[in-house]
Design a protein around this nucleic acid. Structure first.
Length: 893
DNA sequence: AGTGTAGCAA
DNA sequence: ACGTTGCTACACTG
């Protein structure tokens, strides 16, 4: 944060003059409108971006005078001369309305004059102001997104022209214009007249681009020179020029900016003075700008007090010795400290610590022994609260460096997830932009082929800024979390779970590379066999993995009946292939289906082989903030979708084995967890009775739906009610049920009717869930986890239906997820307190896999089954099923 | 690099 | 249009 402060003598005057509309538009398109709105619905993205841009410019360029020029809605001398001027532009987006006026209000509060002039454009005001400024001996900076401004460039006037968005606005000088357009700025308008300007609806000479125009200008001096010599220009372009002379002269007249206007504001009145604090406060309250307010006041406060380095929002320390670090930590007096790591090549190389107003940066490579000890003690101190963004990842990076972490005060990743579980990204940069409305610097990972120099010194500044952002975000989100009643969930479930998941990920699960290799060979053989048969059956080769090529084979060459339509034609999915097989008996289909099954399994096996770690184990990563319902997800590799349903696929579970030093694997899973939760939430007497009777659930339900005794429930009847029961939790329709069971819609409807006649409270409950969610805006699990579903009130039928099904499912799936999380926390705690060596390895939504140490099986099995079945007190018992074996397959039951 | 299709799990 | 929540692989497209 050590920006060099240019010393400017008092006599140096600098005028910053801004094209208000064009910059507001840039800001509008640079920032997503949906992220910037007040609670009353007024969009503020253009206002926010504009003010942010202005503050940055004032900070960087240090102008002594500032003014903003705006266009008026009334006609200008240009539109009067040429009615199509600036025609054909898209309509102003609705979200932009009112934002210009708000910007003008902010300018007023900042004591920056807004200049408008009847029948002239902002560009003419810029030109006039620039000329006045130059005459008075000012340096001039013109900020505009309109290229016409380039004609204003001189040795004393620069144009700041945004490349894209509002953060990248490099100054253009004469050199820059010449490099880009091959002419000096004073000839730019001539060039533009020849080329034309699409944005202003000013066609030029067809066939003439900047290159040709520049060539002519350099040849004939200026536009008049070209027009005088128009007859002597040869070829198609010469012809084109002669045919469009009118365009050119008109363009030139219109793009000539006026330098001589009578302006309502004098140069002296544009002097930059302190803002009107009260007005800013009121305005920013209404606009709900909080970080901008701080930036604004910091900026002007820094101006008043030369002592304070204005760019530094916080005081930055560099840990040169253990004393400095120790003092920094001690001075915090136990208040939370934000911790952010700088990581290169998956390795932590630096640490930024932030507490209120102060930050410290440590390079891990350069740490002396004493400092390392101070840092290690701080990180491992359970009484020293630390704030991370993604604590689990940080813990992995730190333990690899020999640092243990305890005392987790907050994790902004978790907080952000709990208040917006449907959000797809919870990356720090996005969250800071979204919630705090400022931009935090990110470290771009080196691209492929680029050398990752990993200059640690360059990491300091962005990492410190990130640590500050985490600190700010934690405070901000804590309020939101409390407002949304998620504080208890965070403190008692999600934050403690981080440590449990960290341990599971670090443990990993042992695999047999030998068995994986065997399976790989086995499935590869099947793939080859199926491929061969497929090719033979159609007489040529085809990429069996390409749905597009398969469509050609199936529906054109073989002319098989058409399947369900998809975006790219007709589906070739497994279900449709099966239908086609029944209809046509074509041998290609048999081979293709065999190919699909075998290659899928081989991919799974290959993926597992690639993820075996140096310790011979596979370490998945659990994502705690991805599934909107509260479930975990597993990635790199995904161990929550290892095949089990097909006999062939199931063999893959045999490669997951008990590790060395352990005796056996133990799996424990909930039986019918979601149906039990449905019974509990609905309070349906019939379902509760079913579970208490000890009878097989689907048999029991079937006997009531079909009016027969349990013994008389046929397997067909049983599978129907089973599909029905499970479908309910997903918002299944009679159409969907009929499709799944391959029965008529009428029959499906009858089935549902009969079902609800016996288990009516289920229907009542499901309807109530959606009603409540529509009213309150969210669904809730047994443990109070919320999922927000604003689209329940959408006018778009499709979106509303999707939201309704999500609403039906979220409390059920989410409560099941909560239950297992509670159980995992208890199990982890009891394993630790009992000093067991046995440990949890995997979680698969309703199942836990543990690795059991010699002699601990009975106790641990008892402990696990107990904690799982007692995770909550429901209206129905929670039944759990243990299994034991040397492999995951064996332990399955 | 992003999109679409497909298929595996709970 | 018609059952939820995920992850990964591949082909194909810009």
């Amino acid at each position: 944060m050590s920006e060099t402060t240019k010393t400017t003598s008092a006599s140096d005057k600098k005028l910053l003059i801004i094209d208000g509309h064009s910059m507001a538009f840039r800001a509008f398109y640079a920032l997503p409108a949906e992220n910037f709105a007040t609670s009353t619905g007024q969009h503020t993205n253009a206002v926010h971006g504009f003010v942010s841009m202005l503050l940055t410019m004032i900070r960087q360029q240090k102008p002594t005078h500032v003014a903003v020029a705006f266009d008026l809605d009334t006609p200008t001398f240009r539109s009067l001369e040429y009615t199509e001027y600036k025609g054909g532009r898209n309509k102003t987006p609705e979200e932009f309305y009112g934002q210009i006026d708000l910007i003008a209000q902010v300018m007023k509060a900042m004591n920056i004059p807004s200049i408008t002039l009847e029948s002239f454009e902002a560009d003419d005001i810029l030109a006039t102001m620039a000329t006045r400024g130059e005459e008075a001996g000012f340096e001039v900076l013109v900020v505009s997104g309109d290229r016409d401004a380039f004609q204003l460039i001189t040795d004393r006037t620069l144009v700041l022209y945004p490349k894209k968005g509002i953060s990248d606005i490099p100054p253009m000088d004469a050199e820059a214009v010449e490099t880009k357009y091959f002419v000096r700025p004073e000839r730019y308008s001539d060039l533009a007249a020849l080329v034309g300007e699409t944005a202003d609806n000013l066609p030029g000479v067809p066939g003439v681009g900047p290159k040709t125009a520049a060539k002519w200008l350099n040849l004939y001096g200026d536009l008049d020179g070209i027009l005088e010599n128009a007859e002597s220009i040869k070829g198609k372009v010469g012809e084109s020029l002669r045919a469009h002379v009118d365009n050119v002269t008109r363009n030139r007249r219109l793009n000539q900016l006026r330098h001589d206007l009578e302006l309502p504001v004098s140069l002296e009145e544009t002097e930059l003075v302190a803002p009107n604090r009260e007005e800013i406060e009121n305005l920013f309250d209404a606009l709900e700008f909080n970080t901008l307010r701080k930036r604004l006041f910091d900026l002007f406060a820094a101006d008043e007090d030369e002592e304070q380095p204005e760019a530094a929002v916080f005081e930055r320390l560099e840990a040169k010795d253990a004393g400095a670090l120790g003092d920094f930590i001690a001075a915090g007096q136990g208040a939370p400290i934000a911790v952010q790591l700088a990581v290169t090549a998956a390795e932590a190389v630096g640490v930024a610590l932030f507490r209120e107003g102060k930050a410290i940066w440590l390079e891990l490579a350069g740490l002396d022994e004493d400092s390392e000890k101070v840092l290690a003690d701080f990180l491992a101190d359970a009484q020293a609260p630390k704030i991370f963004h993604d604590a689990k990842l940080a813990k992995h990076r730190l333990i690899e460096r020999g640092f243990n972490v305890a005392g987790l005060g907050d994790d902004t990743l978790i907080s952000a997830y709990l208040i917006q579980p449907d959000r797809r990204s919870h990356e720090l940069v996005d969250l800071v932009q979204y919630h705090l409305k400022y931009t935090v610097p990110v470290l771009k990972p080196a691209k492929k082929g680029e050398l990752d120099l990993g200059l640690t010194a360059d990491l300091a500044e962005p990492t410190l800024a990130q640590a500050q952002a985490i600190f700010d975000l934690s405070a901000f989100l804590a309020i939101k979390v409390a407002e949304k009643h998620a504080a208890q969930l965070a403190a008692e479930m999600e934050l403690p779970l981080i440590d449990v998941l960290f341990d599971m990920e670090r443990a990993g699960i042992a695999v047999s590379r030998e068995r994986l290799d065997e399976l790989n060979a086995h499935f590869t053989g099947q793939v080859e066999q199926a491929t061969k048969e497929a090719y033979e059956s159609i007489g040529h080769e085809v990429n069996l993995s390409s749905p597009k090529q398969l469509q050609v084979v199936l529906f054109e060459e073989l002319d098989l009946p058409k399947t369900k339509k998809i975006k790219t034609g007709f589906t070739t999915d497994a279900e449709s292939l099966q239908d086609l097989l029944v209809k046509t008996q074509h041998p290609f289909l048999v081979a293709l289906m065999a190919y699909r099954e075998a290659i899928k399994l081989r991919q799974t096996v290959e993926g597992l082989l690639k993820s075996i770690g140096d310790d011979g184990r596979i370490h998945t990563t659990y994502a705690q903030t991805v599934a909107a319902t509260g479930r975990l997800s597993s990635l790199n590799p995904n161990l929550q979708n290892i095949p089990i349903r097909s006999e062939e696929g199931r063999r893959i579970r045999d490669v997951f084995i008990v590790g060395e030093g352990y005796e056996t694997l133990l799996t424990v899973d909930y039986s019918q967890i979601e149906m039990r939760i449905m019974a509990h939430l609905s309070g349906d007497e019939g379902l509760i009775e079913a579970y208490e009777s000890g009878e097989d659930l689907h048999r029991y339900v079937g006997s009531h739906v079909f009016g027969v005794s349990p013994a008389e429930v046929s397997s067909e009847m049983r599978s129907k009610v089973k599909a029905m029961s499970y479908g309910l939790a997903y918002g299944l329709s009679s159409f969907g049920l009929s499709k799944q069971l391959k029965i008529s819609v009428d029959e499906a409807r009858t089935l549902m009717k009969d079902y609800f006649a016996r288990f009516g409270a289920v229907r009542t409950y499901l309807r109530a869930v959606v009603d409540q969610a529509r009213k309150d805006g969210y669904t809730e699990t047994i443990f109070g986890r919320r999922r927000y579903l604003p689209e329940l009130n959408s006018s778009d039928r499709r979106l509303r239906d999707i939201a309704e099904r999500a609403a039906l499912n979220a409390p059920i799936q989410g409560s099941a997820a909560d239950l297992l999380k509670v159980a995992m926390l208890k199990i982890s705690q009891r394993l630790r307190e009992g000093s067991y060596k046995s440990r949890m390895l995997l979680q698969v939504h309703d199942e836990l896999v543990l690795e059991i140490s010699a002699g601990e099986l009975d106790a641990v099995q008892e402990l696990v089954t107990h904690e799982m079945s007692q995770a909550a007190d429901l209206l129905v018992p929670l039944d759990v099923q243990p299994g034991i074996g040397k492999s995951w397959h064996e332990a399955e039951h």
